[in-house]
Design a protein around this nucleic acid. Structure first.
Lengths: 143, 143
DNA sequence: TTTGATGCAAAGTATTTGCAGACTG
DNA sequence: CAGTCTGCAAATACTTTGCATCAAA
């Protein structure tokens, strides 16, 4: 993935919407895009502080919400009040979550969309989005 | 589904574990099993109060947790701190959630387990459980 | 200059927890 | 009658919000 291209795309999109490109906002977005580990809000915040020390957690949350509203970040909320985010591939896709080490892995699945569409047609349900999480032990933790 | 049979099964199972069958606990379990609407904890509590007025919300939560621990209730937690529960079919299965009216519908899907197993085998991931939610507009709300 | 954005601290909210008293087995 | 369960209220923890101040355009 070309992260630089995605960053430019997002900045242009925000500017065109009339959103301001503050240094904090740019730093937050850069972190979200570069981090491949599906970080939590806290993790993003810690990471951002290293390069831009005057950024509050509230602003991180506000930026996340902004990106959610325009569909540019995927939120993976879990029951225990711990949301993790995917700002690199914001379209819904399956995730495999290791309950041992907490790693979240992307998982493309051929024919997945087709299955959903078939189900939708059969039941008269208009699908807008979906969420598919698989929990278990990753190959590293099995050793 | 034979709800009476499931109720008896659960009561026996709890007694055999050494759990006590208090009137509150029995009332809560009865409600969980009878309600087909994937109720929230609050909704269960309100429903229970009608037939057993001296039941606290805390006890409802404690009973839910007990049932979760023994795998007899499925929790569907959503990001906005609203958990809904399925005590009738506690094994993981896909749900279709109407974002208009909030209805949660069960959805059996042939070959679904097979897909997961295939994915697991390819990646060396040991699947323990999964969660599949489809969001959209139900046929009633489309009219 | 205009208005949206930031940052602090306080509020919000579903769920959990501690503990004294009640009740099941 | 031993030990679990209940119910109350306080605690928790992530996220949101209000508002005065700041700064992008």
């Amino acid at each position: 993935m070309d992260t630089q291209k995605r960053l430019d795309y997002l900045l242009v999109r925000l500017r065109e919407r009339g959103n301001r490109l503050t240094p904090q906002r740019v730093a937050i977005i850069r972190t979200i895009i570069n981090n491949t580990n599906h970080p939590s809000a806290e993790q993003m915040h810690s990471e951002i502080l290293e390069t831009f020390p005057t950024t509050s957690l509230a602003t991180v949350y506000k930026t996340i919400r902004l990106l959610k509203e325009i569909g540019e970040i995927l939120e993976l909320g879990f029951g225990d009040d711990s949301s993790r985010f995917d700002g690199r591939k914001p379209h819904p896709h399956p995730h495999m979550i290791c309950t041992e080490c907490g790693t979240i892995m992307d998982s493309e699945l051929d024919g997945f969309e087709t299955i959903i569409e078939t189900m939708a047609r059969q039941t008269g349900f208009s699908v807008k989005t979906h969420r598919f999480d698989i929990f278990g032990i990753c190959s590293s933790c099995k050793k």
